[in-house]
Computed example of a mutant assay.
Amino acid sequence: MNSLQDAIYNWLTIKVVVDERPEDTAAVDTKALFEEILADEHGVQVPEVKTDEQMYYVSLEKNGEDKTYRFPRDLIEVMIDQINGEPEKYPNYPEE
């Protein structure tokens, strides 16, 4: 993962999916992977997320500094919108 902003974007996108589909094992595993990337590559623990009608705001601490990143809702929610629009393409495969 190149930048912290990219890592947060990827984590937040899949977090939104997991929040709506907590039984989706692939999404849960992917979220955990991005949390490892945030921790291992960027030294960031799970950030705080707030939202309003237009944006997601992700707050975190890195190297003693508080930082906030913001992302448009439509950019972050594109994956869950796609899943909800064509659920037959995104089945949940149970763990074996």
Rank of each mutant, 00 (worst) to 15 (best):
D6R: 06
T51I: 07
A27D: 03
K50T: 11
D74N: 05
D29K: 12
S59A: 12
N92R: 14
A32T: 15
E88D: 06
R21M: 07
I8K: 01
E48P: 04
I83F: 12
I83W: 10
M79A: 14
V18G: 02
G85R: 07
L38W: 01
W11F: 14
Q45S: 12
E96R: 06
Y57K: 05
I83P: 11
E61Q: 10
E53V: 07
V58N: 01
E95F: 11
E36D: 04
D29W: 11
M79G: 11
V17G: 01
P91A: 08
K15S: 09
V78P: 01
I80Q: 07
I14F: 02
E36T: 09
E36V: 05
G43I: 01
D24A: 04
A7F: 04
E88C: 07
E65C: 05
L60Y: 04
E35L: 14
E96H: 09
D74R: 00
N10M: 15
K50D: 12
L38Q: 00
D66V: 14
I14V: 11
N63I: 03
P94N: 09
T30K: 12
N92H: 12
K67N: 06
L12Y: 04
F71M: 01
E61R: 09
V28N: 05
E20V: 04
I80P: 07
L60T: 01
V49G: 03
I14A: 00
T51S: 08
G85P: 10
H42G: 02
T51A: 06
Y93G: 08
E96D: 06
L60D: 01
L4E: 03
V18T: 05
E36A: 06
Q54G: 14
N63Y: 09
D81K: 15
Y9S: 12
Y9T: 08
N92C: 13
V46Q: 09
A27K: 02
I14D: 00
A32G: 05
V16D: 09
V78L: 07
W11R: 01
F34R: 02
I8D: 01
M55R: 11
P94C: 08
G85L: 11
V46I: 14
E77V: 04
N2H: 08
Y93A: 07
D29A: 11
Y56K: 01
Y9P: 10
G85C: 13
D6I: 02
K15W: 05
A32K: 08
D24L: 03
V16E: 08
K62V: 10
D74M: 01
Q5T: 12
R21E: 04
I80F: 03
F71N: 00
E86Y: 13
T51D: 10
Y93K: 15
I76T: 00
A32F: 08
R70Q: 15
V58I: 06
E23D: 08
F34M: 12
N2M: 12
Y56A: 00
Q5N: 10
G85H: 13
V58T: 02
E36M: 14
Q5L: 12
P72C: 02
L38Y: 00
Q82M: 07
N92P: 09
